Simulated assay, not measured.
Amino acid sequence: MKWSEICVHTTQQAVEAVSNLLHEVGAQGVVIEDVEDYDQMMAEDHFGEIWDVSGRESYPTSGVYVKAYVPASGDFQDTFAAFKKEVDGLRHVLDIGTGDVTVVEMDEEDWAHSWKQYYKPVKISQHLTIVPLWEDYEPQPEENVILLDPGMAFGTGTHPTTMLCIQAIENYIRPGDRLIDVGTGSGVLAIAAAKLGAERVEALDLDAVAVESARQNVETNGVGHIIDVKTGDLLKGMTGEYDLVVANILADVIMLFIDDAYARVKPGGYFITSGIIGQKRAEVTEALKASGFAIEETRVMEDWVAIIAKKD
């Protein structure tokens, strides 16, 4: 299968807006390449681990590359032309830097090998380490390993938004809790919850590729008896009450279902949201409060924000 890699050279400020446009043309996820992230990954992190990454020359010397992969369909050229026009239109409201947009066609196999070389085991919280399925890794005593193959669903678990979310889950989950993971992607949040003591996890995603990827990762980690992965459009059709609802998706999407999340969270339970770029923090915070949540905690990593809201 042929895939088109779309790359936009932009600014950190415009990452979310560009990501939204990429989703609109069929991308299931985005890759953000920021040289500041690279330099931080090469440094010692909060847990004393080193992230083995090479290839600094592929990162921009300034600004950010936002990349996504979409099927190279017959009408792609028309879609790509319209996408470039939409990106250029962002100049009226945002600093998008150069705004250069390029596209490269590649086979799925080429895409897979191009990113696997950068994906190594990384400790993301006090008790959890994410290990690529193809890596040999010997865990330390009391170290809980999540084996992951994100495939075309994206979501390696090592992006700041995912790390923030998993660290929050680790802090707030209690043995026997029931949880919903909205927009599960590769299933990493659901698997983390299961390994941290959840009794039952509903993992939802609208995309069939993500659902299949998550199911495979769930089985690989031996938590299929805890996690039910299924197709779902946010929280539509969900009933009952849960101890935690978690969502690591774009801020604009989070604000579409805050009221639904409030209805699904038990009194005393939590809504953990991540994927929020810094300039959207206040907007999401106010929307959570307006629905009845109390802000329990806000966590920041680089320019990304996770908000933990409590239903009193």
Results as ranks from 00 to 15, higher is better:
residue 1 M to I: 03
residue 2 K to T: 07
residue 6 I to H: 04
residue 6 I to C: 12
residue 7 C to H: 00
residue 8 V to L: 03
residue 8 V to N: 01
residue 9 H to F: 06
residue 17 A to E: 12
residue 22 L to V: 11
residue 23 H to P: 01
residue 33 E to K: 15
residue 33 E to L: 15
residue 34 D to N: 15
residue 34 D to I: 02
residue 35 V to L: 13
residue 36 E to V: 12
residue 36 E to W: 01
residue 37 D to C: 03
residue 40 Q to Y: 07
residue 43 A to G: 14
residue 44 E to H: 04
residue 44 E to V: 09
residue 45 D to A: 09
residue 49 E to Y: 12
residue 56 R to Y: 15
residue 59 Y to A: 00
residue 62 S to C: 04
residue 62 S to K: 13
residue 63 G to W: 03
residue 66 V to K: 03
residue 70 V to T: 09
residue 76 F to K: 03
residue 80 F to V: 11
residue 80 F to M: 08
residue 81 A to V: 13
residue 87 V to W: 07
residue 93 V to E: 09
residue 93 V to G: 02
residue 103 V to L: 10
residue 103 V to S: 08
residue 106 M to K: 15
residue 109 E to Y: 06
residue 118 Y to L: 11
residue 120 K to M: 10
residue 123 K to S: 14
residue 124 I to P: 00
residue 126 Q to F: 10
residue 127 H to N: 04
residue 131 V to S: 11
residue 133 L to A: 02
residue 141 P to G: 00
residue 143 E to C: 07
residue 143 E to A: 13
residue 151 G to R: 11
residue 151 G to L: 06
residue 156 T to R: 09
residue 156 T to S: 12
residue 164 L to A: 08
residue 164 L to K: 04
residue 167 Q to R: 13
residue 170 E to F: 05
residue 175 P to E: 04
residue 176 G to E: 01
residue 178 R to V: 06
residue 179 L to M: 10
residue 181 D to R: 07
residue 182 V to T: 14
residue 186 S to D: 07
residue 187 G to A: 02
residue 190 A to L: 05
residue 191 I to G: 05
residue 192 A to N: 06
residue 195 K to H: 00
residue 205 D to I: 00
residue 205 D to N: 00
residue 206 L to K: 08
residue 207 D to G: 02
residue 213 S to E: 14
residue 216 Q to Y: 10
residue 216 Q to M: 10
residue 236 K to S: 03
residue 239 T to Q: 10
residue 248 N to H: 07
residue 248 N to G: 04
residue 257 F to T: 08
residue 259 D to E: 14
residue 260 D to K: 15
residue 262 Y to E: 05
residue 263 A to D: 09
residue 264 R to N: 03
residue 266 K to L: 14
residue 267 P to M: 02
residue 270 Y to G: 00
residue 272 I to E: 01
residue 272 I to W: 10
residue 282 A to I: 09
residue 284 V to M: 05
residue 286 E to P: 04
residue 288 L to Q: 02
residue 290 A to W: 01
residue 290 A to M: 07
residue 290 A to V: 04
residue 290 A to T: 10
residue 295 I to L: 11
residue 296 E to D: 06
residue 298 T to K: 11
residue 304 W to C: 11
residue 305 V to N: 08
residue 312 D to Q: 06
